[in-house]
């Protein structure tokens, strides 16, 4: 669906803008490619620290074991100076914030690592930047079609295609997250540790968002970083992921019992 919508928008741009549309697409595509190459070849700067095995052997060995099982090269591991628990992957690299080590136990951190290895194995770390940069191309094309063409029907069609693109992009990214969880479950010695990790991270975020004001009246959201709100969520919720994990581990469980 995502690729089909993109293709339709490209055809519309070439059809309506003619040579200008073609030039725009080629230039933007080249620009996207250049940004992609730059992003793919540059190393992280700032508060990132490359992890040596002797620093945290259980993490290093755990990642090595899972990488071998997944059939990928041993990823580089970085620690990020940030007190908010977070983990992510890019290229063949895993990043763990120091805050993660404050809120999760060893098995749970390995579960988070397994999810990120899942992204690498499934090719998401190569694909996600392309999707992210292509979004700008879609925005630009839509804007140009709306501004340049005089037909309101064409403008309307282009806007609809853009809306469809945003929805299918969100759906696509969610699917990839579920896919990374699925891969992680196959890599982990204790698959339930991924569920436990997600539950703890959900608890942390709930606490940050002042949900548990009655239990802890002192929590004020002002101490935490401001987060932008998204109109279309590109990440599945913790509950959705936990439910899927439970269903995958216990295929016999009826969904209504879990909800």
């Amino acid at each position: 669906m995502l690729y089909l919508v993109m293709l339709l928008q490209l055809i519309l741009a070439i059809g309506m803008l003619g040579e200008l549309g073609l030039k725009l697409i080629v230039t933007s595509a080249l620009l996207v490619l250049l940004i992609y190459i730059w992003a793919y070849t540059s190393e992280p700067k700032g508060s990132y620290h490359a992890l040596e095995r002797e620093q945290i052997p259980w993490l290093y060995d755990g990642v090595a074991k899972m990488a071998k099982k997944a059939g990928i090269r041993m990823p580089k591991i970085y620690l990020l100076e940030d007190y908010i628990p977070n983990a992510y992957s890019f290229k063949n690299t895993l990043v763990f914030s120091l805050g993660l080590f404050e809120v999760l136990g060893e098995e749970e951190i390995l579960a988070v690592a397994a999810h990120e290895i899942g992204h690498i194995k499934n090719g998401d770390t190569k694909l996600f930047p392309v999707i992210a940069y292509s979004r700008y191309l879609m925005m630009l094309l839509t804007l140009m079609i709306v501004v340049v063409t005089k037909s309101s029907l064409v403008s309307f069609t282009s806007l609809i295609l853009y809306a469809l693109y945003e929805m299918s992009r969100a759906e696509y990214l969610k699917k990839r997250e579920f896919g990374a969880d699925h891969t992680a479950l196959g890599l982990l010695d204790v698959p339930l540790s991924l569920k436990h990790a997600l539950e703890e991270l959900k608890y942390y975020e709930d606490l940050r968002e002042n949900v548990k004001t009655n239990a802890l009246p002192s929590i004020e959201p002002s101490i935490d970083r401001k987060q932008g709100t998204q109109i279309i969520e590109t990440h599945p919720s913790y509950d959705e992921r936990i439910l899927r994990i439970l269903l995958e581990i216990n295929p016999g469980l009826p969904q209504n019992r879990l909800q």
Binding site: Y83, G99, E102, L104, Y203, L207, S218, I219, E220
Partner: peptide
């Protein structure tokens, strides 16, 4: 653990 971490950062 989350509670302790959040409160210490607070």
């Amino acid at each position: 653990r989350s509670t302790v971490s959040i409160l210490m950062n607070r």
